[in-house]
Amino acid sequence: MKTIGIIGGAGFIGSYNTQKFLNEGYKVKVSTTDISNKSKYEHLQNLNNAKNLEIVQLDVENKAELSSFLKGCEVIVHGGTPFQLDVKDPKTELFDPTIKGTENFLGAIQQTDGIKKVVLIASVAAYNTNFPLLPDGKTDGKSISENDEPFISEQSHPYAQAKFIANQAVNKFIAENPKLGFEIVSVSPVGVMGKSLSNREDSTSTGLQFLFKNKIAPNPFIKMFYDNDIQFAIVDVQDVAKGIYQSATTQGIHGKNYLLSSESYKVSDISLMLNHQSPVGKPSIIYSNELAKQDLGMSFQPALATLNGFDS
Rank of each mutant, 00 (worst) to 15 (best):
L291K: 00
K88L: 05
N37L: 13
L94P: 02
S156C: 11
P218G: 10
D140W: 12
S203V: 06
D239F: 02
G281A: 08
P158T: 14
K2P: 15
N177D: 06
T306G: 03
I6V: 14
K2M: 13
S39G: 10
G207H: 12
G141W: 12
E42K: 15
L211N: 06
T204N: 00
N147H: 09
F131D: 11
T204D: 00
L304E: 08
K242M: 08
Q168G: 07
N177S: 08
A292S: 15
L47C: 15
T306E: 01
L304M: 08
M298C: 05
Q19I: 01
S145P: 04
S186H: 03
I6E: 04
F83S: 07
G5Q: 04
A162T: 12
K27D: 12
G243L: 04
V185G: 03
I144F: 03
E201F: 01
D239T: 11
Q277T: 02
Y26R: 11
D239H: 05
S39A: 14
S188P: 06
Q209S: 13
A50K: 15
V77I: 15
D295A: 02
S153R: 06
N62V: 01
K51N: 15
P150C: 09
T3C: 12
P178K: 15
Q168E: 15
K179P: 00
A175Y: 07
E149M: 09
F151R: 09
I174A: 09
K20Y: 10
A248P: 01
M298R: 10
D113V: 05
K293D: 06
F95T: 11
T129F: 05
K29F: 01
S31E: 07
H254E: 02
Y127E: 04
G281R: 03
